[in-house]
Amino acid sequence: MANSSNSRPDFSGQAALAGIAGSSSDNPNGGDAGLVFREISHLGKLNLRGDKNLAAAIKAATGCPFPPKANQFQSAGERHVLWLGPDEYLILCEAGKEKQLEDTLASTTKSSQRYAITDVSDSLCALALSGPKTRAVLAKGCGLDLHPSYFPSGDCAQTLLALAGVTLMALADDEFIVICRTSFAPYIQRWLADAALEYGYQFVA
């Protein structure tokens, strides 16, 4: 899924976790690592302010139904539209496709339609988490009930993870995307590695 976003060939900017080497720790109980995580480097992120009148334009630009319900996201392949607030959404797209998406949105909206779209790709860092202990690790630093029956795949939430503001996305029962501020990314990376020690982890640089 979103992991293939790493395939963008040429990028001049530096990824948020570019300076952090891959690391791992064996599962003390044997078996596979409980958590495998990596940065989805240069994932396109766009902040959108607007309302449901943009449904057709968002559908044209991303393929996602719009608007997503509160605390949920809609997906179409690698593109996701996350609900952030009553008139605020976060669009995730393939690395480098932000401008194209903005242009499609501009060309499919009427001049009377009001919205604001901001490229926040470098402001935020997305981490892809997978492994059987993904929810257990996140639950160590998060006040939300992350049980799959309460936070099923398709749900997203802006909340605190180890006191840092993050956006959580449940792609599947054991697959999450965690989006944090770029400046918090090394902290979140280290916190995840530490929290996952008892289950074994692998951080893929």
Partner: peptide, 10 residues
């Protein structure tokens, strides 16, 4: 009123 029940810390 928008996100539902959350921890006071938020």
């Amino acid at each position: 009123p928008f996100c539902g029940p959350r921890d006071e810390a938020e």
